[in-house]
Simulated scan of single mutants.
Amino acid sequence: MPDTLPSSVRAEEAHAAAVAPRPNDDPARRVAAAVRSLVLPVVVAVAVGAIFISVYLSAFHAPVARDLPVAVVGSAAQAAGVQDRLPERPSDTFSVRAVEDAQAARSAVQHGEVFAAYIPEGGAVTLLYAGAHGPSVTALLLDELGEVAHEGGQSVEAVDILPASPQDTRGLAVFYTTFGLVLAGYLFGIMTYQLAPGVSMARRLVGLAAFGVAGGLAVASVVSAFGALPAPFFGVAGLVALVALAVSASTMFLVRALGVMGSSAAAVVFMTVGNATSGGSLPAEFLPSWLEPFSSVLPVGVGVRAVNGLAYFHGEGVLSGVTVLTAWIAAGVGGLLLLERARGRARRSTLVQGAGGKRP
């Protein structure tokens, strides 16, 4: 049937159809979309900043050691006497224990089991310590244990049996060696999806492995060039590579699972809590009780302890560090593979249902 409507009527109908509300133009939905696009970024960014400040102020506004282990050569009664003569501080600042002889005391310091050894010998005290723990720890030990000896009328000879590298006067080389690839691993985990969203999982995992190996070798080369750590080149490279892989694989999983929120979650876990509890500037014994456990489970803390042990303390913390970091890598990669498999099944199911619903 021919169209007999005047052109003016047809034009009015077309205009009405164009301006008529559509199902997706519901005002409530537009408001909700605007709130998500404007308010959510503000809320997330402010929350991340508030968490950052809260964690760092809690950790470092007034750090006080808790249960800092110290060895005393002698009987349990002599160790208790040293504990009683310690200056008035929080009662759990030091954990004093007795050891049999000076050789056992020296070994405990060298293996990182204690922070200092108090060896009374007549009218004098020999105080063994490890300068590799950093100047803040050294100052605390010399002041407090020196006062104990002076109170007992004894002179003090302090001996640094594990000094920090001459190229690391502030004792920060271990932290920067480890943390450099924590930041890089976080960025890699985000950029691998931003720059190459369509890459297959196999190629993505090859890129992850290449990043870890290349990053570990690069960091070890820089550390070796500066002579900042008395540690074997490939040992440093291997540990740093494991830290990088642990952070990047976990970040990849969080980003893939949660999208933009995943990158925020990774920033909080690795860059904020991980950094604050790493033990890079002060040992974990100086952290508040609610933060200290993170030092032994997050990649940054276990990496710092492993690199420090490799450089100075006869491998203390290396085995446990490798174990924890490997678990992080396995969890990140395993989570990615399971997530991709689940999403692949969901896509295939959707395609099958769509094909079944079509009419010939």
Rank of each mutant, 00 (worst) to 15 (best):
S155V: 06
L142D: 02
A164K: 14
R305F: 05
Y312T: 01
R256Y: 01
A257R: 15
V318G: 06
A173M: 05
A311V: 06
Q194D: 09
A241Q: 03
H150R: 15
T93Y: 08
T4W: 07
A50T: 09
Y176G: 06
I190T: 07
P283A: 00
A331F: 14
S320W: 04
H15R: 13
L38T: 15
L336G: 00
L310S: 09
L140R: 10
A306Y: 03
P299F: 00
L338V: 13
R22T: 14
S75M: 08
V64D: 02
Q78C: 05
V43K: 03
P69S: 07
P197R: 10
S295C: 02
A284S: 05
Q78D: 10
P63M: 09
S200D: 03
M261P: 08
A77M: 11
S295A: 15
D3K: 01
P360N: 08
F294T: 04
P360H: 14
P41D: 09
P197Q: 07
G131W: 10
T350R: 15
L287Y: 05
V273Y: 04
L141V: 07
V174L: 04
A249D: 02
A17F: 12
A257P: 02
G185M: 01
V268K: 01
S91V: 14
L337D: 00
V304M: 02
A65D: 02
A33Y: 11
G354S: 14
R256M: 05
S295E: 00
L172S: 08
G152Y: 08
V240P: 03
F52W: 13
N275I: 13
A246K: 08
P41N: 10
A11P: 08
S136E: 12
A184G: 01
E285Y: 11
L336Q: 04
G189A: 10
A33C: 06
V300R: 04
R89L: 15
V304G: 00
D160F: 15
G207V: 03
V148K: 01
A14M: 11
D84F: 12
A132Y: 09
N24S: 13
N275M: 13
A342S: 15
R256V: 03
G321D: 00
F233T: 06
L141N: 06
G180W: 06
N275Y: 11
S136K: 15
G354I: 03
E88L: 13
F188M: 02
F60G: 04
Q154L: 08
G279N: 00
F226E: 07
P232F: 08
L142Q: 12
V247A: 06
S75D: 09
F226K: 06
G227D: 05
L291M: 07
R36W: 14
T251A: 09
Q83V: 05
L205H: 01
G207E: 01
L183T: 12
V125H: 11
V82Q: 01
V114W: 05
Q103T: 14
D3S: 04
A306N: 04
V213G: 02
A265M: 10
V137I: 14
Y129L: 12
D92A: 13
R345E: 10
E147W: 11
S91C: 09
G274I: 01
E88G: 13
V159T: 07
L282C: 03
L40V: 13
A209D: 00
A355M: 09
H150P: 11
S296T: 08
G356S: 15
L337R: 03
F211G: 02
V99G: 05
G309K: 02
G74Q: 11
A47P: 08
V44M: 04
